[in-house]
């Protein structure tokens, strides 16, 4: 968010120096609702969370300040480091699985043929379903005795259907469920972005004798660069802070094999009622998420907001 705002400022400055018509731009008051919204629902809670992280509070009465005790505990708590490792693995897996799928489906769905339109509208259905309903359905499907896992398990190396009960199987299962749920959203982004690519680029490539693969590799993919970055930021930061599906499908198990950092935070806050400690985890997550999006934006050149249509 900050990064995007920063990028916009940068662009504006250069626009101003180039002598653009400043009167045509909306005044500062236009940004007020957004600033208020962000301030009240993100800024203030973030600040309060920071204060809470220095307290000992069970949710009742007045929090007692206990200095850096929570932070010190977090540094030595092996459970936090374990969860951090699981979170990072989970995040990378989510990206690796979802990006190619969403990209291919999105580009395919961008075609105007009727069959593509029909199939993609079916494919986008998971977008309309509630997360909890999806997760509960999958939880039942993963039952090793009566669910889909009983049938599919033996084919993929789980002869007794014990997918969700295996350390790697459980993580894999959660990644698949989340991909099933979110690939449609990212496909939709790629679909609309692909439709923005001017047809003349393909016409020119065709004249040069480029095949279907070369067209995809040399035109579609470079043209989708900004979309890939946007989708990746959403995916990476999203999967870093996401845990609803995990909570319902595996409940962090087997043992703590899928206990990602956000679920650890939730459990600290709402099962153990250690609000101070949960606040520490929340701040760590917020810092990680912000750092991640800054790094991506910086190193991808997205911050410069160059048009992919330069030269046309």
């Amino acid at each position: 968010m900050t990064a995007v705002a920063g990028a916009r400022r940068g662009r504006r400055r250069s626009a101003a120096s180039a002598g653009a018509d400043r009167a045509a731009r909306p005044g500062a008051v236009w940004i007020l609702p957004a600033v208020l919204f962000f301030g009240v629902f993100a800024g203030v809670p973030l600040l309060l969370t920071a204060v809470l992280s220095f307290t000992d509070w069970n949710g009742l009465g007045t929090p007692n300040f206990n200095g850096v005790a929570n932070w010190r505990h977090a540094l030595t708590d092996s459970a936090i480091w374990e969860s951090m490792r699981i979170s990072l693995v989970f995040m990378v897996l989510c990206w690796v699985v979802q990006t190619p799928l969403a990209l291919l489906i999105g580009v395919w769905a961008a075609g105007r043929e009727l069959n593509r339109a029909v199939l993609s509208s079916i494919f986008f259905l998971p977008l309309l379903m509630s997360t909890a309903a999806i997760a509960i359905t999958w939880r039942v499907l993963l039952d090793p005795n009566f669910g889909l896992a009983a049938t599919v398990g033996p084919w993929i190396g789980f002869p007794d259907g014990n997918i969700a009960g295996d350390q790697h199987g459980a993580l894999g299962a959660v990644v698949v469920v989340i991909a099933w749920q979110f690939v449609p959203f990212h496909s939709l982004m790629y679909q609309s972005a692909t439709r923005q690519i001017p047809k003349m680029l393909y016409d020119a490539a065709l004249i040069d004798g480029a095949g279907r693969f070369q067209q995809f590799w040399h035109i579609t993919l470079p043209q989708l660069r900004n979309t890939i970055i946007t989708s990746s930021v959403l995916m990476l930061v999203g999967s870093l802070t996401y845990f609803e599906t995990i909570l319902i499908v595996t409940n962090g198990g087997p043992g703590t094999a899928t206990m990602v950092l956000p679920q650890r935070m939730y459990n600290s806050a709402f099962q153990s009622f250690q609000m101070g400690y949960a606040s520490v985890i929340a701040l760590v997550l917020a810092a990680l998420g912000t750092a991640l999006s800054l790094v991506i934006v910086r190193f991808s050149g997205y911050g410069k907001m160059r048009s992919t249509l330069e030269g046309i």
Binding site: I136, R139, V140, L142, D143, P144, N145, F146, A149, D160, G161, N162, I163, A164, G165, D166, G253, P254
Partner: peptide, 16 residues
Amino acid sequence: TNFASVNYVNDGAGLL
């Protein structure tokens, strides 16, 4: 052998 995947709340164990 596969109890680690069986739940109670969604009738996994009860059905078994």
